[in-house]
Amino acid sequence: MVTSSAADAQDGRAGRELMAAAGVLFPDGQGRVLVVRLPYDRKHPVAIPGGGWEPEDLSPRRTAVREIAEELGFTPRLGPLACIDWTLDDLRPPIAAHLYWAEPLTPEQSAAFTPDAAEVGGWAWLTPEQAGHALPPRLSRRVGACLRAPRSAGPLELEDSLPAGHTLDHLAAEPPVDYTGLAGVALTGGADRPTAGAAAPPLDRATYIATRPRIRAKARTLFTAADGRVLLVRLRPWDGPGGEEPYWVLPGGGIEADRELPRAAARREVREELGWECEPGRLLALDWLPGREADPASRRDTAVLVYVFDGGTVTEEQLASAVLAEDELVELRLCDQEEARSLLSAGSWARTAAALAARHRPGGPAELVGGRPAD
């Protein structure tokens, strides 16, 4: 029997897989945010409502809605994506964490919570300062960034919960705050201390992480000429379905998830494929491509998250200096939008068009599912 790890190594995906999660920021009319106590976690008992992606979830947005329904017993009305945060950790696979804004809850809605006791051992409304101390450090930085930045800057781009890309225009990295956990937090609907009746986690940490589903991610870069034509590259044919057909994409490829962040991957892919040293610009689009368990029409075995960065304007000199990766690419071409639409797959063109449009508006990346707006 071939294990999933062995299969990944055989098909070249080892090291490229990561986990995905989605949380929800519930504000109230007093500038506070909702946090919950995790009854099974004594080390980090305070969290934002939400949880891990499952293969049947069509998108992280659906993950967020499902998790709130399971944890707190109601269906939230989500607003825009607040941030995307890619975090690395020596003790677990990386995580692509999505945080969403929700419509403020009324006191009546809060009073009607019907939490799953195994998942939620109480809740509290905390000011940004209180939340900064109560949440574990990485989550504290992530949530703090969303609470401090203007909404118009969203979605924020974070790497290891620190500002990246356009987020640096709105936020400076702040010094860490003291982590106090539940100390001083008055909970509703549960015990005030994690040791009081705390349930043991159903699985130990290593086993839990090993059983969690994985996604993959890609980093692509949008280059255009001064006249607006889009730079596309044609992949070398490969063995497999459709492998002999001409296949055009934006420059880029898979993120080595266990060793690099998305911006580093975009930089590396451009260097390897084209021979250029380019610093990625703004993150223009985040495109979630569902796997077959969520979308039976998909040929993907799992979901793929595509980052599209702005590569800016390419010059004639830069094009002349391009050195194509012979084992990957056959040619590059500048295409007007009509030709690009004809060469790219429907989903890839929709994603490219959304990235082009994002260049002309402020704020963070477009949130997409299969190239289309996520909402």
Rank of each mutant, 00 (worst) to 15 (best):
G275D: 09
T211V: 06
P373I: 02
P49R: 04
E317S: 13
A118R: 12
A97C: 11
S342A: 11
W86C: 04
R341P: 04
E56A: 14
A186R: 09
L203S: 12
G31P: 03
A96Y: 15
D116C: 05
E245P: 00
E54T: 13
R372H: 12
E316S: 13
V36A: 07
G12D: 09
R263A: 13
L289C: 15
T63H: 12
V65T: 11
A198S: 01
I215E: 02
W349E: 07
A145D: 13
T195A: 13
D41H: 14
R263I: 09
W238Q: 06
R214D: 00
R361A: 15
R151F: 14
E71M: 12
L126G: 07
G52Q: 14
P237W: 10
T195V: 05
L135R: 06
R236Y: 03
A358M: 08
R300H: 06
A7F: 10
V143Y: 03
A340E: 13
R214Q: 14
G347H: 08
G154I: 00
V270D: 12
R142T: 13
I68V: 15
E67A: 08
S161M: 08
T180A: 07
L305T: 07
D178M: 01
H166T: 07
R271V: 06
R372L: 14
A9V: 07
S298E: 05
L232E: 07
R299Q: 10
R234T: 00
D239P: 01
A226H: 11
R372V: 01
G190K: 15
C335Y: 03
R234P: 01
G364P: 04
S140P: 06
T167F: 00
G190D: 12
E328F: 06
P176S: 10
D89V: 00
G144H: 02
P80N: 10
A64H: 10
A285N: 05
A153M: 01
R13V: 15
D327E: 08
G51S: 08
E273G: 07
A210Q: 09
A9P: 06
